[in-house]
Amino acid sequence: MKNIKYIIAAIIFIGLSSCDVDNLFTTVREIDIPEHERKLSINTSLTGDSMTIFISHSKEIDDESDFSPIDAKVSLREDGNEILSFDYNSENNLDLIIDKKLDEAIKQGKEYSLKVDSKKFGTAIASEIAPKNPVIESLNFNKEVFKGEFGEYCKFSCVINDEKDVDNYYFISFKLLNLDGRYLEVNSKDPELKRVFIRSDLSNNYHSESFFLVSDKSFDGNKRKISFEIDKPYYGNNNQYKYKVVMQVNSVTKSYYNYVISRDQALSSNDNPFAEPVAIVDNIENGYGIFSVYAYKKYVIFEN
């Protein structure tokens, strides 16, 4: 046992000599990334008598090469009957967005199925039931200007009359028209209203919209008043510019509601290492993205 001290010293020596001294306390090791099967990614919005579609594909997280163009056949069915079909080819324009007019407006309660067929990335499908138009009972814009902590604002409220025993989801947006580049700040103290900071990926208007989501879980079948505080959009002479504030209330599907919530959570927690990770949920089978079918009503709530 006299030698035990030497044995210990030898172990320490071997151990220390095997260390990378520069990185003694922090050793970084690259790991294999899970394999990924490439699939189509689709962003489609279907409302009224128009459909807008953008198609691309997924790829491995570590692949920094350009995305490939898409050559695919698109078809739209209403309760199983094809109502629209066309080719999508982004060979010359990877940012291709196609707007299509339908022969008739979509009908509430009907099932709409989207099928995108690509030789390279397989076939992706999605189905949604078209929601009913939202029922807005009243709008009340109070022109009186209140002074808030961060500026002046006006009060606005609307009453939604919700249909009973149906899971309804409302997406409410406010838009400022005719004042390009100005951001319209709209707030709400309503605890059930979820403010989101994302916007349609198919639109180019970045700065002039505010978005809110609400589910009818707590007011199913009842009237629900929702109040907002709308900041004055322009702090100069109010009469100098003509502008409008437009509110759009969209009835959206559950999957779109979940998609927007998860996408917003992912974006807002991106830089927070303490935040719980967020998986974006979507409604495309054998693919990624969102097929949104919605109905809406639009109101000019203020005009200068």
Partner: peptide, 28 residues
Amino acid sequence: VTIPVYKYRIGPGKVIENSGEKNSFRLS
């Protein structure tokens, strides 16, 4: 652990990184 395992384009200039199923990846 949850890590982004794939990415896809959702619109012009818009790329989403997604993790898929939560905690679907294992550390060594």
